[in-house]
Amino acid sequence: MVTGGKGRGAAANPPPRYAAWQRHPWDDGWGGGPEPPPPTELRPERARGAIARNDSPDLPFDRSVNPYAGCEHGCIYCYARPTHARHGLSPGLDFETRILYKAGLAEALRRELAAPGYRCAPVALGANTDPYQPVERRLGITRAVLEVLAAHHHPVMVTTKSALVERDLDLLAPMAGRGLAQVALSLATLDADLARRLEPRAASPRRRLQAMARLAAAGVPVGVLVAPVIPALTDHEIERVLAAAREAGAAFAGYVLLRLPGEVAALFEDWLARHRPAAARHVLSQLRACRGGGLTDGRFGARMTGQGERARLIGRRFELAARRLGYGAPPSLDCSRFRPPGGRQLALFEGGSAGGAGL
């Protein structure tokens, strides 16, 4: 399945790191000018399982559901880009134009929720790539997952940078009324031109703020994720982003310092050379000051917030602004309402609770 093309984040398609081949540019002498942006190609992938587990102390959840691999939003900084290499695809243009979608994901999730050993805890939607990227309008896989979670009173944490989340207010609002749902919108900058270059197919900053307001008005707990914070490029906006989101109805907030794992570092450096050449050296220097001399750091406790005085100042600014604006902690989600598919009876020693404490 192929859809039309549009602006893209990456300008290159470096080979996946597991490939035994290399791609080299070739001039055949015919000229022809620049090639048009590549179209989006959708590839079905049968979902053998639904819930991915993690034991990261940096994350507020231990499980997630990921409807898509690759993301049309084309965010040049996306930490998930290197995962496309597992499919023999490039983390560059392939990541944003060759989208794998999980066919049968809702059915697989229902089976896992019905398993005798399953214990309920909030599930994250949007932990890898955006569950509301443009192809979701047609495929509806994220909505099907939400329908399963809503039907069985299972709590969910949604993270997105798309206003398409408003489509599912008919599910999210009733779930939120039972303490089962919260939504966080990612917002790195309020500068529309910069956002268009960093995140070429994501919703505009203004549209994301509108989505926050509509979620909040419908009674859905909504937060803002100031992410990524890019030293010397977007960090000066931390306070402005928090203030705008608070005015729109955001009640909780977090931030993530830019991290550039694997092939993302070279892709981001290329992006800087094309879009911010005068600032490129300074941006990379400031990022290295936050990353122990490198461009990324995968260690728990450091990968989200960085290290050193520069990173500490970013964190302190975020904390002071969030406190001044009245942000609180994300709401606890209720796991006691969970009812497994098929009416499975819960063990008596669990006292009728499907998973105990909330988030």
Rank of each mutant, 00 (worst) to 15 (best):
Val2Arg: 14
Gly9Lys: 08
Asn13Gln: 11
Tyr18Arg: 14
Asp27Leu: 12
Trp30Thr: 15
Trp30Ile: 04
Gly33Thr: 06
Pro34His: 08
Glu35Val: 05
Thr40Arg: 15
Glu45Leu: 14
Leu59Trp: 13
Val65Trp: 01
Cys71Asn: 09
Gly74Phe: 02
Tyr77Ser: 00
Cys78Phe: 05
Pro82His: 06
His84Phe: 01
His87Asn: 08
Leu93Gln: 14
Ile99Thr: 10
Lys102Gly: 03
Ala108Val: 10
Arg111His: 11
Ala114Val: 04
Leu125Glu: 01
Ala127Gly: 09
Asp130Gly: 08
Thr142Ser: 12
Arg143Pro: 04
Val145Trp: 03
Glu147Cys: 01
Val148Arg: 04
Ala150Asn: 09
Ala151Leu: 01
His154Lys: 04
Asp168Ser: 09
Asp168Met: 07
Gly177Pro: 07
Arg178Thr: 01
Gln182Pro: 02
Val183His: 00
Ser186Thr: 15
Ala211Arg: 11
Ala217Lys: 12
Ala217His: 08
Pro221Val: 08
Pro221Asn: 11
Val226Cys: 13
Thr234His: 10
Thr234Gln: 10
His236Trp: 10
Glu239Gln: 11
Ala245Tyr: 02
Glu247Asn: 01
Ala251Thr: 15
Gly254His: 07
Gly254Lys: 08
Leu258Val: 07
Gly262Ser: 11
Ala265Asp: 10
Ala265Lys: 03
Asp270Ser: 12
Ala280Arg: 13
Leu284Met: 12
Arg288Asn: 05
Arg288Asp: 02
Cys290Phe: 08
Gly298Gln: 06
Gly298Trp: 03
Ala302Tyr: 08
Arg303Ala: 07
Glu309Leu: 14
Glu309His: 12
Arg310Asn: 00
Ala311Met: 06
Leu313Asn: 01
Phe318Cys: 06
Leu325Thr: 03
Ala329Asp: 12
Gly343Glu: 10
Gln345Phe: 00
Ala347Gln: 07
Phe349Glu: 12
Gly352Phe: 00
Gly358Pro: 10
